[in-house]
């Protein structure tokens, strides 16, 4: 099968790769670019563990083809910290015990950051509905929701 040459930007870096027509963006991120922070929990867009930003919009990377990333901008969990400085969400997820096994954490952090980027003062209900596409089986979501709300407050300078 002939492969498709794709040129794109991932976490600010220009990258290119060859993918098969049915490779998903998640396959490419994990298997070709070695960005294994995005996880495959279902491959059907139901669990959100593979959540990334594509041109600033949240997508399940398992539902996007690798070929569709041509000329676009992809942001993954690996691009969330600035060097060794964690994003406030990352810092608070550690400090407030908002993770247990951690396998859903990358997708949840990417989704929560996207929320706070455009909604700096979300209600609890808004956070709950925004993260409804990100399954977590360990925590019951309680500490995750609190960490997102606390981070929003902190980032607004109201903490």
């Amino acid at each position: 099968m002939s492969r498709i040459h794709v040129t794109t930007t991932v976490n600010g870096d220009a990258v290119d790769y060859l993918c098969e027509a049915d490779d998903t963006l998640l396959d490419v991120l994990r298997d070709q670019l070695d960005l294994t922070g995005s996880k495959e929990g279902c491959a059907s867009g139901d669990c959100g563990a593979c959540t990334v930003e594509l041109d600033g919009r949240l997508v399940c990377s398992c539902l996007v083809l690798g070929a569709e990333a041509e000329g676009r901008t992809v942001e993954t969990i690996e691009g969330m910290a600035n060097g060794d400085v964690l994003h406030p969400l990352q810092k608070n997820f550690i400090e407030k015990a908002a993770l247990q096994c951690g396998v859903c954490t990358p997708g949840i952090l990417v989704a929560a950051k996207n929320l706070l980027d455009h909604t700096p003062d979300p209600s609890e209900e808004e956070v709950r509905y925004w993260l409804a596409g990100n399954l977590c089986r360990c925590t019951g979501y309680d500490k995750i929701i609190r960490a997102v709300l606390d981070t929003a407050a902190e980032m607004r300078g109201a903490a």
Partner: peptide, 23 residues
């Protein structure tokens, strides 16, 4: 006390290696 977990940084940055993450 409520100290930070040692595996926290790996898990919030995507570095942590789960079953499917090794080659």
């Amino acid at each position: 006390t409520r100290v930070a977990r040692p595996d926290g940084l790996d898990k919030v940055t995507g570095r942590a290696r789960y079953g499917a993450d090794m080659s």
